[in-house]
């Protein structure tokens, strides 16, 4: 009896596990895209991500491929900005 009820509760636990995972993944994979499909702005946003190969889940600057180029471009801009300021002061 104890063995039967413990294997029953074990089976229920596995079902719960699969159900929770399915629900969470289902929400992310189907509900959210469905909601996004109503907005042209959101769709345009997703297209921009795809074009720039950006992963919004990246947690550090070294995980975003565009960062080194952005850094270089800004360093150049700072150099030009300082030269411009110096020229204006003169």
């Amino acid at each position: 009896m104890n063995t039967a009820s413990s294997s029953n509760s074990r089976a229920k636990a596995y079902v719960k596990c699969v159900a929770y995972l399915t629900l969470s993944l289902g929400f992310l994979m189907f509900v959210v895209p469905y909601l996004y499909s109503f907005s042209p702005t959101l769709n345009k946003y997703l297209k921009t991500l795809d074009e720039n190969d950006i992963h919004p889940g990246a947690i550090y600057y070294s995980d975003v491929p565009l960062t080194p180029e952005s850094e270089l471009a800004n360093r150049e801009a700072v150099k030009r900005g300082i030269e411009l300021r110096a020229a204006r002061i003169k």
């Binding site: 345009k44 946003y45 921009t48 991500l49 720039n52 950006i54 992963h55 919004p56 889940g57 990246a58 947690i59 550090y60 600057y61 995980d63 975003v64 565009l66 960062t67 180029e69 952005s70 850094e71 471009a73 800004n74």
Partner: peptide, 21 residues
């Protein structure tokens, strides 16, 4: 998050992406 910053910046424009990142 850094990735989301790049995403939001890219949506705004190339200069915004550069500065945001």
């Amino acid at each position: 998050s850094t990735g989301s910053v790049a995403a939001a910046g890219a949506f705004l424009g190339p200069k915004a992406l550069q500065v945001a990142a």
